[in-house]
């Protein structure tokens, strides 16, 4: 086996992973940009997406793709309820209130799922598990599907934000809330929409990861930390930055895990944060050029 093939395989592994990181991080950054809330419950919605997929596929017997769609729609729906009950009342409160509120949501969700499913890891089977070999490099079908779906979702989001009236209004809220009052953009409505959108993306990430990794109620914590790292690296509020940072972290982890040390792998994201905070505190795409 040549070293080049192994290197390529490491790159492919990292690429496939970065798609998932990207989806979680983009939702997080979007919600921050529009609601000015650091959503500590984001990882739990990702976990919820995974469990909803599990319910749809293992209990209701739906095919995997249908389960994914159902999971995304129901996460977005749950997000609407949560926004109404726990986000809207605190949206104009202090930073601490917001932190506490989203933290409470995260605890409630994690414990509700723990209660329903116990901590025993579950597995989602897709029926598309398998692998494609190309010139010695292996592509896991499930991971390729996850990457492509994630990429498509990202493109769709980008088009939505850049081209549509509602998408532009969401960016408008992120750019200048006061000006929204001038032109009559309903901040509550945009907040709700954005929250549902961001959570839907987290749910999608969870649905895509479910068959790749085992799922458990605590799965959100590790991912949300990484997503925070990515969002910080990419610049808070920057969709493009989050996508790029996800790529850096995904590839970096794969190469560090393969050539340096598997133990260091998970610390890499945080090492990158420290470096970015020192060199470019505003993130790669800090506020100056953010997409939102």
């Amino acid at each position: 086996m040549s070293a080049e093939i192994i290197f390529t395989q490491h790159l492919v592994n990292g690429l496939l992973l970065s798609g998932i990181y990207g989806l979680v991080a983009v939702g997080l950054t979007l919600i921050y940009g529009v609601l000015e809330i650091v959503n500590f419950a984001h990882g739990e919605f990702y976990m919820l997406g995974a469990y909803l997929t599990f319910i749809a596929s293992a209990w209701l017997g739906l095919p995997y793709y249908a389960s994914v769609i159902l999971a995304v729609l129901s996460s977005a729906f749950i997000a609407l309820i949560v926004e109404r009950g726990a986000i809207r009342p605190i949206v104009e409160r202090s930073f601490e209130s917001k932190v506490l509120s989203t933290f409470a949501i995260s605890m409630i969700l994690a414990n509700a799922v723990l209660l329903l499913f116990t901590a025993t890891p579950r597995t989602v089977r897709t029926g598309i598990a398998g692998t494609i070999e190309f010139a010695g490099v292996f592509f896991s079908v499930e991971r390729v599907v996850a990457l492509l779906t994630g990429y498509l979702a990202f493109l769709a989001l980008h088009m939505f934000l850049q081209r549509t009236r509602l998408g532009k209004a969401i960016r408008a809220v992120a750019q200048n809330r006061d000006a929204c009052y001038v032109v009559g953009i309903d901040l509550h409505k945009m907040a709700r929409l954005t929250f549902a959108l961001g959570i839907g993306l987290a749910g999608l990430a969870g649905a895509l990861i479910a068959p790749i990794f085992s799922i458990e109620p605590s799965m959100g914590q590790a991912v949300v930390l990484k997503a925070f790292a990515i969002v910080i690296v990419g610049g808070f509020g920057s969709v493009k930055g989050a996508a790029l940072a996800a790529l850096i972290v995904g590839l970096g982890e794969s190469l560090v895990g393969g050539y340096v040390s598997a133990t260091l792998k998970d610390g890499l994201a945080f090492l990158i944060i420290i470096l970015v905070l020192i060199i470019r505190p505003q993130g790669i795409f800090g506020r100056a050029t953010r997409v939102l």
């Binding site: 408008a172 200048n176 000006a179 009052y181 001038v182 032109v183 997409v291």
Partner: peptide, 24 residues
């Protein structure tokens, strides 16, 4: 109502700003 400060969307073009102006 025009609030204190600049009530515009800095990362959108002038045209897009005007389009936002008619959002409602």
């Amino acid at each position: 109502y025009l609030p204190q400060g600049r009530a515009i969307f800095p990362l959108m073009t002038v045209q897009e700003n005007l389009e936002m102006g008619v959002f409602s």
